[in-house]
């Protein structure tokens, strides 16, 4: 394909990405580096701040007064000004530790329920993005389902990376920052859910992709012709080939000094599959051990017989 066509494809996917994904990397990085002025996220780093902030998890708009009041309480109470940016090297990482024994029953299940409802919403966003990939909706409908079933968790893990730094992650559309130590303080096996995503995310962020690079990379992941059970692989591979060309060109133009970035990115696709396999096994374990846990029907559909 002509370079002009490949650039047009990159632009189209970037526009779709901006349309369907509410929190871009650009916005998340601005929040994480404290460049958003007075709008700072509420920090959840222990049970007390969780109790204060839990009602706002998954809120699209946290009430300003409440939010600011609580934010300053957290900031003053712990001598944290602003939020723990990746470069700050603050002692923030230790704030959430040592509370494992105090965890009230049910907190993990409530958090997991919130995580599920945001994930189901995110699956819808990814589906709309997939439908915007030229040629996707012309594929066999069963193959579209298979591509989403196998691709969507990989996409969601990639999309979490820009929201993370080594100390924690933004949630609730960037309005709450939940610390990595807090996740680690939850009871087993919930404490094991996020750590692999942090490890992946922190490494992934060193590649310094921007939102326009991400849009192409996500499309490449969705268009994987080797998913089990695909009926008609050829047209999927052809679509992926074009997006791969577009991604390669995009990276050359956008990151001229980053050596082997394209190859490094493709390598990440292999790492992702292992993370998804482990994630699915963890959810299956939860299904067996947590009698009170309800699994969202959409997530159930995706996870069932996946790996």
């Amino acid at each position: 394909p002509e370079a002009a066509d490949l650039r047009a494809l990159a632009r189209h996917l970037y526009e779709a990405y901006l349309k369907y994904f509410p929190l871009t990397k650009a916005k998340a990085r601005a929040i994480l580096s404290g460049k958003t002025g007075e709008k700072v996220p509420f920090i959840i780093h222990d049970m007390k701040s969780l109790i204060e902030g839990e009602q706002f998890i998954n809120c699209k708009q946290i009430p300003v007064l409440e939010h600011q009041k609580q934010m300053s309480a957290v900031a003053v109470g712990h001598g944290v000004s602003g939020i723990p940016a990746a470069h700050s090297g603050s002692d923030f990482g230790s704030l959430g530790s040592g509370i494992g024994g105090m965890t009230p029953d049910g907190v993990e299940l409530r958090l997991f329920k919130s995580y599920q409802s945001r994930s189901a919403e995110a699956v819808r966003e990814v589906t709309e993005f997939a439908k915007s990939i030229p040629g996707f909706i012309d594929l066999d409908l069963n193959d579209q389902v298979t591509l989403l079933k196998y691709g969507v968790i990989e996409v969601l893990i990639i999309m979490m990376s820009p929201l993370m730094n080594k100390d924690g992650t933004l949630i609730s559309y960037g309005q709450i920052f939940m610390t990595r130590e807090f996740f680690k303080s939850l009871r087993k096996p919930f404490c094991q859910m996020m750590e692999p995503k942090f490890e992946f995310g922190v490494k992934f962020n060193t590649l310094e992709l921007d939102d326009s690079d991400m849009a192409l990379f996500l499309a490449v992941i969705i268009l994987s012709g080797d998913r089990p059970g695909l009926l008609n692989v050829k047209p999927i591979e052809q679509l992926q080939e074009t997006v791969l060309h577009s991604l390669e060109l995009q990276l050359k133009l956008n990151h001229p000094d980053s050596l082997q970035l394209f190859a490094k990115l493709l390598q990440k696709m292999t790492d992702l599959r292992q993370i998804v396999t482990d994630h699915v096994h963890l959810i299956e374990l939860l299904k067996k051990t947590e009698v009170d846990m309800l699994l969202h029907p959409l997530l159930q559909e995706i996870i069932k017989d996946l790996y």
């Binding site: 919403e121 819808r124 389902v145 969202h296 959409l298 559909e301």
Partner: peptide, 20 residues
């Protein structure tokens, strides 16, 4: 098809978040 009912729905129409 029955196994992936919601995914089918999402692919065929724009489902609003409330429907999920």
């Amino acid at each position: 098809k029955e196994k992936h009912k919601i995914l089918h729905q999402l692919l065929q129409n724009s489902t609003s978040p409330g429907d999920l």
